[in-house]
Amino acid sequence: MAENATAQERLFALRAQIARLEGKSLPALAAAEQAQAAENPECEKAKIKQLRLPFGIDPLDVALEGGLPLDGITEVRTRLMGDAGAASGFTFALVSHLKGREVSGGPVLWIGDAVSRQEAGAPYAPGLRQFGLKPHEVLYASPRKLDEALWLAETALASRALSATILEIRGNLKNFGLTESRRLNLRTKAAGRPLFLLRHAGEEEASSASFRFLTEPAPASGRRLPDGSVLGGSIGHPVFRLTLEKSRNPAPLSFLLEWNPHDRQFSLNSKAGEIFSFRTPPAHSGTGLPASADRPDRTPALGHIMAFERAS
């Protein structure tokens, strides 16, 4: 009898450990939580709010189970170095969005990569300011080696003094594999601070990141005039073409996301010819599909057209 009980206890302990590793609530407690949530939905929402960073777009937040994790790694990758602008823009937009939500919180740490700085330039304070991040809110670290960068990221997370950490790396590095990424993930879990991994010109690889976005550039939205119309030929708020490659959702999700730096808000950009859709990524990266709204149609570009604009 007693043996049976000890075995049971061990089983529960192991289950609890697995649940913790997977980032779920404990199975035993889950039922109780659900019951509580049914009674008091506000409380449940507040709980999610603490650990998640919602985009404020309902279909997207549902797909992300409430938003990006604030105690985990989010990876943003590009296929080419040339897309660094879009990827950095999206990452800084996320951080700015995060800072907009939080009242307090420390500065943001940018751990840069020397080669990427040569290739795509260094973050520019006046530009960041227009993006919603004040100059004294961003710290720039320039480590010489990857080891130093990882140490910096780890220390930054452990100190809990920084509201977010951005780690910029280039390509798929041998010294930054699953082990290192798991280590960082454990740190984020312990500290409750997010880490954004910005990978330029990298392939998909196994990591502990909760979500991975493939970022590609997309035509910007036009500038809006006071009467609501769009000023033709103008370059307004940036738009990113994002593919959610890694998540708990089975199908990759692709969408165009617009960042409004003034309101610090994301919005779905469906005007540019592509709607929010679940789609398979193209077999080969062709030229971008959408034609800008204010111009006559061009000759159709190469590649598959997966979804058409809604007729009505």
Binding site: R117, G121, A122, Y124, P126, G127, R129, P135
Partner: peptide, 18 residues
């Protein structure tokens, strides 16, 4: 710095080449 900095009216880039 906030008080004295020059604030451009036109958009500036996010990443600048040295």
């Amino acid at each position: 710095e906030e008080a004295f900095a020059f604030v451009p009216k036109v958009d500036r880039p996010l990443r600048l080449f040295r």
